[in-house]
Amino acid sequence: MKVVYCLPHPQTVYAARFLHDGLRNAFLDLGHEFTTFTADDDLERVLREHQPDVFMYSLNFYHRRYVDLPLLRAYRERGMVLFALTRAWNRSAGFLTNGSIAASDLRNDRHEVQLIRDGLAGDVFWNWIPRDHALLEGFEATTGARYEQILLAADTTTYWPEFDPAWESDLAYVGANLVAKRRYFNSCIRPLGSEHDLGVYGSDWSLGSRALGHVQRLGQYLNVRGLAGLREPQLSVADERRVYSSARISVNVHEDQVRATGSELNERTFKVLACGGFEIVDDVAMVRDYFGADELPIARDAHDWSEMTRHFLASPEERQAIAARGRERVLAAHTYHHRVRQILEIADGVRARRALL
């Protein structure tokens, strides 16, 4: 199977990079061909040279600057299946009532909604949000399009247990200092550092890093090569793996809106466990759809974080048993190899339905 994946700027230090890398590594490991289409590439040439069976992009203004949907439709007519990563239909559902937020809802983007209804935007519209969630209510009925839930996962070609005493700590957090996490992190996680050894790694934790980030994002938007690659992740993948493997507790924090809606699981949920790490996660309802309390403990508030940290630091055997069960769960159902197989099954379903027309 030949796959082309649109990632305009692979130098990004945020989640899009890691989703791309996880899927790429799994496709390649399973024997498929994988090509990344970037802002510097010519789409017509890439399609002509690679003749993809699957093309994946994100349905947003940024990606639409580089993809030619009528050209992609011509290849779909020859058998290619187009996957469009889409955002929430009702982003404000369940947690925001301020009308100013509604502009970011897909349902209010008339142009993209029309692209979907006209059949131009794709064959498969997907995200990691559950299909029956309020955030997606009305999407299929309004657009006539099909939605699929494809969860994030662990990249087991790069994340596995590798203890390294140089990265040992009581607690560790790896992630960007996003605005939507900052208040929770400062109230629930940061205070733990006064009593325990807390390591924090990632982008945007200093004013300098945030300033470089603004410049880099502007460079990516304008496609200025020198600025687009201004930053790399603070940790290499190998060092990130060692952090998760070596910390006695790995902290996982989602964005505020995710806790409020319980609508998704970040990639960290899976990759900490893939490394054999012991993880405590914030209170996201969706966690319990996939992990039991004996595989992944949940902390609801600052009191929980404090008490659970003390308890599990003092209980290494219990901690190790929970981590082992969590890793077993991830390896059984939540690797990017599983997601690739799901993507290929969905693509086969699209082709089967086309054959009936």
Rank of each mutant, 00 (worst) to 15 (best):
R48K: 15
R259A: 10
R353H: 07
S206Q: 10
W160H: 14
L152Q: 08
S236G: 10
F185N: 05
A88Q: 14
D132Q: 13
H311S: 09
D348R: 12
N60Y: 07
E33Y: 01
V330K: 03
A39C: 13
W205K: 02
T86K: 01
V287E: 03
A333P: 00
V237Y: 05
R225N: 01
E295C: 07
R73I: 11
Q149E: 14
S92G: 03
F125L: 08
L207F: 13
L192W: 04
Q11D: 14
R17I: 09
R210E: 06
Y14K: 08
D348H: 04
F270I: 11
F270L: 12
I298D: 05
P297F: 04
L218P: 00
R183I: 09
A323N: 09
L331G: 03
D42P: 00
F55N: 01
V174D: 00
L218V: 09
A333H: 15
I129M: 06
E33C: 03
A26G: 08
R248C: 05
A314Q: 14
A211W: 13
R78Q: 15
V54Q: 00
D256Q: 11
V54A: 00
A103V: 15
L28Y: 00
A141W: 03
D123S: 10
D105F: 03
V54F: 05
Y184N: 10
G79W: 14
H20E: 08
Y57A: 02
N127R: 02
R351F: 02
L135S: 04
R73C: 06
L313K: 09
S209W: 08
A15H: 12
I249F: 03
E318C: 02
D256E: 14
F55D: 02
L69C: 09
P297K: 04
Q234F: 03
D40R: 07
Q216W: 01
A247F: 06
D53W: 01
